[in-house]
Design a protein around this nucleic acid. Structure first.
Lengths: 236, 236
DNA sequence: CCAAAAAACGGAGTACACTCATAAATGAGG
DNA sequence: CCTCATTTATGAGTGTACTCCGTTTTTTGG
């Protein structure tokens, strides 16, 4: 069997193992949950040595990131799809977040673990930065919605303000997912809250944009520079 | 030596050990950082057996929560103090968050770990719920500022909206701390961003309050109920 | 086709958080 | 003061994520 300059045997082997590992991890997490699965089990099901596993993912949590990045990627696509059917900014963002939020409702614990590893895991590991790139794309999409809304209202688009608001929206979603798993706080449907949070952030971002109708009384931005000094020093 | 119905010997012993453990953990975390310290070291410095440690804190992360709860408590007091000197809502909230944010800048990694454990740790463990209670107090304080601002603008105070906005503010702070440790995202001073985020959230919360000047064009809240169905089902 | 070099593999070994069976300490009752 | 019951302390033991180095496989070069 001739091979037309394709990937070498080594590469093919690596790819196969990669696939087996991905499948094994994905299945086991789905069956029993991230925390209840051992790396031994994953390596066994993937039919590789216990040590080999760690040549393909630097840690157990990287395996989770590897698997759930794909989920997030898919959810993001689906969200972008749906988004087009919304008729205002808040709805558009909710549509965008919808599929990801829905996944989180179905697989509470593992989704929370994913959020945890995504934001708190060892930086500079492959799958983590992949995941962060997805988050960046999500935020960019949110930013797009906000930009559109601003333009429709005839406001000057300040990309910084919009970027920052997008981060807030992600932060709210992140916390909603975290809370739904640990029952933190006084409960109250966290996902209903999320809609309100998004509405507030959207409204606030647009209200503050230069050229907004009017910046109601107490100026939200103080005049004195970018203000670094009033955060810190405990000793006078 | 007579003893006037005070705590029993047992209680005193327990209290002493508790103190020694707290001090040992606090010192070691400060010296070398949470992740580099082993529970062995802590139990040795506290002069208790390795097993005893876990009678006073259910896990290593509970030790972190135990120690940093006090930091947060102090920061919160300091923040409430400073807050009174602010002349608008955004400044007040930044003052309130200031000390906690400052601590996070000084001890990036451990603060991030604290946030992680606080939000993602095992629910129903003592120090975690203590920490969550502090967060609730922080959010209540933020809510107080917002209520004041709303009243000063002559708006009807919707406590739900205000509660939810307070959660957003905490979410933004939480993520700012998480990011500053892992260098996630494109960087850009996360704490400068935080000020803008707070301004946007405050403005948005007030803008949406019933009785607000006018709810600019695309209605932030859709009319059709509380909207659960448009988040979910992937299959039609 | 063979030999040497390089890369990938794998399982025994390690470190560390946490548990558990046993021992020590304390308090209550006589 | 002594005995017994109950609570608390302890460190050897356990499970598990991860590492390390000898072995095997693959590639390269002649």
């Amino acid at each position: 069997m001739a091979r037309a300059a394709g990937p070498s045997r080594r590469d093919r082997n690596a790819q196969e193992k990669q696939d087996r590992i991905f499948r094994a991890a994905s299945e086991l997490f789905a069956e029993r949950g991230y925390s209840a699965v051992t790396t031994q089990e994953i390596s066994e099901r993937a039919d590789v040595g216990a040590g080999t596993l760690f040549r393909y993912a630097a840690s157990k949590s990287e395996l989770l990131l590897m698997v759930f990045n794909e989920e997030l990627r898919a959810a993001l696509e689906a969200g972008k799809e749906r988004m087009t059917r919304a008729d205002n900014a808040v709805e558009a963002i909710m549509m965008l977040l919808g599929p990801a939020v829905q996944r989180a409702r179905e697989r509470t614990d593992d989704s929370a673990a994913y959020q945890r590893e995504l934001l708190f895991g060892d930086a500079a590991e492959r799958y983590r930065s992949e995941g962060l790139a997805l988050v960046a794309r999500l935020e960019a999409a949110i930013g797009g919605v906000l930009t559109g809304a601003a333009e429709r209202r005839g406001l000057d688009v300040d990309s910084e303000a919009i970027r920052v608001a997008s981060v807030s929206v992600f932060a709210a979603m992140h916390l909603a997912i975290a809370r739904s798993s640990t029952g933190a706080h006084g409960s109250a449907d966290v996902y209903e809250d999320l809609r309100v949070q998004v509405a507030q952030i959207v409204e606030g971002a647009l209200a503050i944009l230069p050229g907004a109708p009017f910046e109601s009384s107490p100026a939200p931005r103080s005049e004195r520079g970018t203000g670094e000094q009033e955060q810190g020093e405990n000793e006078p």
